[in-house]
C-alpha cells in the first residue's frame, strides 16, 4: 500500500497567468478521519451567469429543476486554504469545496445538496432517488502501482464501488497536468482515483475548455486540462465543458466537473426513473463535437456536454 495525497484540482490564477499547468495548488492535507460536514447554505437562484452555457437559460425557462436529485460534493471543506473568486455574487473568499459546492448548486438550484470533507475517510452515503457525486480532487501517488495495489479508505472505496455498480453518477475532474487521464504528470505522480474509475459505467471524467463553445465560436481545450488520451475506455467516458476562469477567477477542471454534476441532476429531475447509468450515457451520447476546434476523441473524448441535447428526444412526431 502506498501513501496517497489528496489534491484539489484547481489552478491558481497566478499559476495560470504564468502558463503553469501544474496540478494542485492546495488541499494536500494529511488524511484524517472526521464526520460528514453539514452542507453550507448558499442563497442562489436560477440566474444565468456569464460563465454558464446559454443552454441552461433555455432549460430554466420551463421552471427548472434538479429537484429530487441529491448531489454530494466531496471536497475540501475544512482546510485553511481559501481562494478568491466570483461566480456572479461578487468577489468572495472561499475554500475549494465551498466554491465547487456553490457552482454545482448554481447549475442545479433545486437539487438537494450535500457535502463531505474529502479527508473524512468515511463512506459517502447515498440518498433516495438519483445520486450524483462531484469529485473535484485527485488522489496522487508515485507512478508504477496497479490499481489493485491501492488501499482505499472507506470514502474512496465507496465512491469507486458506486461507479462500478452504477449506483451514482460520478463527475470527476480530469486533472490539471495536461496529461492523459491515468498517466503520470511531470512530477511522476498519478491520480489513482482517476485510474480506479476508468472503465466504470457511471464515472465521467470532465476536462476544461477555454469557453462554452458554439458552432461559430468553437472552444479549445484549456492549456492545463488533462485530456482523454488513447485509452478508449477513458475516451468513452470523457466530457468537456467551458471553464471561464477569465470571468470567475477560478481555473481548473475542479470547476468543470460541477457543471456536469449539475447537468446530471437536471437530467435526473426530468427522467425520474432513469438509472445512473442511463443518465451518464445520455450525457455522453449527446455531447457535441461541432463546438470544439479540431475535435479529437483522444483529446476531447465524447466532446462538449450539451444539456439542451441531453434533455431533448431523439425523435418526435
Amino acid at each position: 500500500m502506498t501513501t496517497m495525497k489528496r489534491f484539489t484540482l484547481s489552478v491558481s490564477a497566478a499559476a495560470f497567468a504564468c502558463g503553469l499547468a501544474s496540478a494542485a495548488t492546495a488541499g494536500d492535507g494529511v488524511p484524517v478521519f472526521g464526520s460528514v460536514s453539514a452542507a453550507p447554505r448558499f442563497s442562489t437562484g436560477p440566474i444565468l451567469q456569464p460563465w454558464m452555457s446559454p443552454e441552461l437559460g433555455d432549460a430554466w425557462k420551463q421552471g427548472f429543476s434538479g429537484a429530487g436529485v441529491t448531489i454530494t460534493v466531496v471536497d475540501d471543506f475544512r482546510s485553511g486554504n481559501f481562494y478568491y473568486g466570483n461566480l456572479g455574487n461578487g468577489t468572495q473568499l472561499r475554500r475549494h469545496g465551498e466554491w465547487t459546492y456553490l457552482e454545482t448548486n448554481m447549475v442545479a438550484p433545486s437539487a438537494t445538496m450535500k457535502s463531505q470533507d474529502f479527508t473524512s475517510g468515511q463512506t459517502v452515503k447515498l440518498n433516495r432517488g438519483l445520486n450524483v457525486l462531484n469529485l473535484s480532487y485527485g488522489m496522487y501517488a508515485a507512478a508504477g502501482y496497479s490499481v489493485g495495489q491501492i488501499g482505499w479508505s472507506a470514502q474512496e472505496g465507496s465512491i469507486i464501488s458506486y461507479a462500478k455498480n452504477g449506483q451514482a453518477v460520478i463527475a470527476k475532474a480530469a486533472g490539471n497536468d495536461a496529461v492523459a487521464v491515468g498517466a503520470a504528470n511531470a512530477r511522476g505522480q498519478v491520480d489513482y482515483l482517476n485510474a480506479s474509475l476508468v472503465g466504470t459505467p457511471t464515472a465521467i471524467f470532465v476536462g476544461a475548455l477555454d469557453r462554452n463553445g458554439t458552432v461559430d465560436q468553437k472552444a479549445v481545450l484549456a492549456s492545463y486540462s488533462n485530456y482523454a488520451g488513447t485509452n478508449t475506455a477513458v475516451q468513452k467516458n470523457f466530457l468537456t465543458v467551458g471553464v471561464r476562469g477569465d470571468l470567475t477567477g477560478l481555473y481548473g477542471t475542479s470547476f468543470a466537473a460541477p457543471v456536469v454534476a449539475g447537468y446530471a441532476a437536471v437530467l435526473g429531475s426530468k427522467f425520474t426513473s432513469a438509472s445512473p447509468t442511463q443518465i451518464t450515457n445520455q450525457l455522453l451520447n449527446t455531447a457535441r463535437t461541432d463546438t470544439i476546434q479540431g475535435y479529437n476523441a483522444a483529446v476531447h473524448g465524447r466532446g462538449e456536454a450539451s444539456i439542451a441535447r441531453a434533455l431533448a428526444p431523439r425523435a418526435i412526431q
Binding site: Q278, N281, I316
Partner: peptide, 9 residues
Amino acid sequence: CTADYGAIG
C-alpha cells in the same frame, strides 16, 4: 406529440 427519448425515457 409522441416523443422517443431512447433508453433514458
